[in-house]
């Protein structure tokens, strides 16, 4: 069930970035998609259990979550965040000459 929700998020994000005409909306849709991907990592990390994987006092037989996907996705979150920031800044720059931010219009005016 959770897995289905995660995939639905990814698909909504993907189709949003294809079908939305506004450039800012496209970028936000891509962020939704990346949220889905991150959620999928978290989901896979919790396959074996949901306890925080920090060994305080060793408790045998406890179901800890897998720390590796969590650690890895942290990097991906930071990267995704910086890319979002870069894209939004360029959208702000583009918005001065194309206030509506219609992708097709921007594409038309910047074609060689």
């Amino acid at each position: 069930m959770l897995e289905a929700c995660v995939f639905a998020t990814i698909l909504f994000g993907f189709f949003g970035s294809v079908l939305k005409g506004n450039l800012a909306m496209k970028i936000i849709a891509m962020d939704v998609m990346s949220t889905g991907a991150i959620a999928y990592y978290v989901l896979i990390a919790s396959r074996g259990g949901r306890l925080t994987p920090i060994l305080d006092e060793v408790v045998a037989g406890e179901a800890y979550a897998d720390p590796v996907p969590q650690a890895v996705i942290l990097t991906a979150i930071v990267i995704g965040f910086s890319i979002q920031a870069l894209m939004l800044v360029s959208v702000m720059k583009l918005a001065r000459d194309n206030p509506t931010l219609e992708t097709s219009a921007i594409e038309q005016s910047n074609r060689p």
Partner: peptide
């Protein structure tokens, strides 16, 4: 404007 658009397009495609 054109350089920013080309760069943004590149980043969008590769990030997806």
């Amino acid at each position: 404007d054109r350089a920013i658009w080309i760069a943004l397009r590149y980043l969008f495609v590769s990030n997806t």
